[in-house]
């Protein structure tokens, strides 16, 4: 074997060596746009953790919200809202639910957590959300959430229930 053929052999082996791993690594990334954060959230099952992640930023850790910034508090207001059928449709369409990217299972858990924590004395007569009901509620078309809320608020006022302050009355 001359020196030249030896080098040619090395070059071919080099080419193969370089291209082979590239070919085998051309398999698609398993995530398909799901980043690590999405993966972590999808595995989350603790209603409290889900509340902390998806709701507490605005509704705050204590559920008291920031009424001066337009975020209604839960205590005293969530129970009457969740006892009204249209109120339940409204709850299923608030921005935090619509934009949450959580599954219906996770959403039902987190909504029931809010009722457990902040419905107070009314917790026992406030119906909880099931996955099936939530799926149905979310499919109910609500084109104008503010208008829809206004209608729910009027019903609550008529039945003598308390209504939280809201920046778009």
């Amino acid at each position: 074997m001359t020196l030249r053929t030896l080098f040619t052999g090395i070059s071919i082996a080099t080419l193969l060596g370089v291209t082979m791993p590239l070919v085998t690594s051309a398999e698609p990334q398993a995530s398909y746009g799901l980043d690590d954060h999405d993966k972590v959230v999808r595995k989350m099952t603790s209603p409290k953790s889900l509340y902390m992640l998806k709701c507490s930023g605005c509704h705050r850790v204590d559920g008291k919200g920031a009424p001066e910034a337009g975020i209604p508090p839960f205590p005293g207001f969530i129970a009457p809202l969740a006892r009204n059928p249209d109120g339940r449709v409204y709850i299923a369409h608030v921005p935090g639910i619509v934009g949450s990217r959580l599954s219906n299972e996770q959403l039902a858990d987190v909504l029931n957590y809010v009722i457990d924590e902040w419905a107070g004395e009314d917790a026992s007569d406030t119906p909880r959300f099931t996955v099936e009901e939530l799926a149905e509620l979310r499919e109910t078309p609500v084109t104008n959430i503010v208008e829809y809320r206004r209608d729910v608020v009027n019903q609550l006022i008529e039945s003598g229930d308390p209504v939280a302050d809201y920046p778009w009355p």
């Binding site: 972590v40 930023g57 920031a66 910034a69």
Partner: peptide, 10 residues
């Protein structure tokens, strides 16, 4: 701030 941004970190 009254409101905040919550995320997950490893």
């Amino acid at each position: 701030s009254l409101v905040s941004w919550v995320g997950t970190c490893h």
